[in-house]
Design a protein around this nucleic acid. Sequence first.
DNA 1: CCGTTGGCTGAGGATGTGCTGAGGGTTGCG
DNA 2: CGCAACCCTCAGCACATCCTCAGCCAACGG
Lengths: 220, 220
Amino acid sequence: MTPRVLVVEDAEPIRTAVGIALTEAGYGVRTRPDGDGLERELAEYRPDLLLLDVMLPGRDGFELLTVARETSNAGVILLTARDAVDDRLHGLRTGADDYVVKPFVLAELIARVEAVLRRMGRLRTVLTVGDLEVDVEAQAVRRAGAEIDLTATEFKLLAFLAGRDGKVVGKTQLLTAVWGYDDYADNLVEVYVSGLRRKLEAHGPRLLHTVRGSGYVLRA
Amino acid sequence: MTPRVLVVEDAEPIRTAVGIALTEAGYGVRTRPDGDGLERELAEYRPDLLLLDVMLPGRDGFELLTVARETSNAGVILLTARDAVDDRLHGLRTGADDYVVKPFVLAELIARVEAVLRRMGRLRTVLTVGDLEVDVEAQAVRRAGAEIDLTATEFKLLAFLAGRDGKVVGKTQLLTAVWGYDDYADNLVEVYVSGLRRKLEAHGPRLLHTVRGSGYVLRA
DNA sequence: CCGTTGGCTGAGGATGTGCTGAGGGTTGCG
DNA sequence: CGCAACCCTCAGCACATCCTCAGCCAACGG
């Protein structure tokens, strides 16, 4: 659920600081002082992102980057020394997703981590209404821990309602947003609301309320 | 529910004054003297709006603006020094939603905050009369914390009265506004006022007063 | 104090809106 | 090709809401 980050950095203070900062920012973190056993770590920990120092004892950051690309689809951010222009070029050419120049502000590092993860689609936009979670990217819905299986249309409907959390949405509006119709067609919306409710309410109280004469609301 | 504002301003008196003013205006507020850890604050507090001083120790307002744009979809208002024309140009080019020139009147600041939030669609139009809250978008009514369930017509009636807070509204006027009739029909209005009162007065004293010979007023 | 006017409210029938189960057509997959 | 899932239509049912009506109550003026 929360993205995992693997940090490879030999300088102890930096390694610890980065580890703490990432943890506080809500990521899962593991740190290592060098690239030994990286392959196993990748297979085992399955990180979403690698933070690789370029200057390392043993295999350097570039080598690790190449290794990682073979077996993992994690994003990679390189930590390079200031003005090591060659490093940056090399790094980007080799396929790093971003690089951070040392010394860096931790906040900036966090920002870049987030940016890369977002670009990779690993940072999920999850809409939350009460105990309901709608993961828009993954097309997954969870309530009280339980996965709820929805059809494509049901999901579109729910996602739209979740995005307007708390606001009443008219049936015509839903029809255009979800089905692309411009005017009212039968009781399509009602039928789908009915089905959606059955699935949602199997795990908790009503969230999808009717506002008679106006439409529907998703609200805790 | 209520919009959250994050204020970054190094001058202590201004920071405090702005914080208090925003709180009184009904916003959630956090203040910080500089941009350190802004990323975490963004992720954690999820503000709807940022108020950034341009002249800051460490990273200045522009840098923070750029950072914020990457990871957040909050609106941004810059606080610039008088006649710093470059700043304004730079600010708007960088994508600020608005700017306020120092020194400013607090009321103006609040007005701009409201304007930006409204433009962003983050501002709920909630009409308030005494302890009664009428949320127009959500079609929800609350009194003393309790949700009150109204029918569509009752809601329209109440919303109209709430929108003219303190002013007497004639029955004919209500008839046209709520029902679309052009002239008087029976005692329709009276019937609905009666029903509305029963629901409202279950949670407190009378708010919807009769003005004999003229109409009705909603007033605490 | 009484009459008149204006306002209040309970009852009830008509209407409209929403809910749901069933089923036919279509699509995608094994 | 057969099966299953899914999308949409249809029709009947249930009931909330709307509006009318009629009787009662409160206020105000004389």
